[in-house]
Design a protein around this nucleic acid. Sequence first.
DNA 1: CCAATAATTCAAGGAATATTGAACTATGGA
DNA 2: TCCATAGTTCAATATTCCTTGAATTATTGG
Lengths: 118, 118
Amino acid sequence: MDERQALSSFAALSQETRLAIVRALVVAGPEGLAAGVIAERMGVSATNVSFHLKELERSGLISQRRESRSIIYSASYDALAGLVKFLMEDCCAGHPAIRENVEKSDGCCSPDDEVASA
Amino acid sequence: MDERQALSSFAALSQETRLAIVRALVVAGPEGLAAGVIAERMGVSATNVSFHLKELERSGLISQRRESRSIIYSASYDALAGLVKFLMEDCCAGHPAIRENVEKSDGCCSPDDEVASA
DNA sequence: CCAATAATTCAAGGAATATTGAACTATGGA
DNA sequence: TCCATAGTTCAATATTCCTTGAATTATTGG
């Protein structure tokens, strides 16, 4: 992930609706969600969700595919992982202690926990 | 780190000058850098750097202290670590594989490498 | 106290983003 | 073919963000 991409990703994630969309898509997994479903869940208009989805796609955080009448969006795990890495590298540049801090207090998921489901 | 803080942090990091400032401050360490030094390094006016520093402080990513005539800014490692964690949790919410991916390809710094310098 | 240094705040203009409704495109079924 | 469904694109407006120069505040040295 180069700086331009990171800047664009941060911008994409700095908007409430878009952050919520990314979260929903990450939870949804590779199957993704149709634009209409996303709009409904977020409580925004079709026009508006379309605008935000385009922004997210432009930054590379999500991708789309057509499936019959629907357009299905899904999270780009590579891009998300790349962004985390970018942030970590910036942190570590100064003080490795941060990295430790992140890993120690990680209440998210342990590496060997649910890997079977991937 | 709650959502509001994350949104604000992403917004702060989505601007070229501000991202460069954070990087410089992370490298500078706890001693930090004076506003004037930052302005000079970034090649922007005093007014402009002041604006961006205020934005960064508002989001909690940096903090300031006065030292004689200068105002010294330094990175908030806690906030940065919190942001990394926030992102990781969003990732992991869907697929733990991402976390593995981040850790595997991390060419940044190993936990027991430079910790002595902290 | 006065001048110099270091920075911030204010106000104004310009640029980029976000929101909305109307018009348009693509797909699938009767 | 015609219609309904699912989305997008367009154009206009509103809002927020960025930049700049001028004025202001805080600190130190003479």
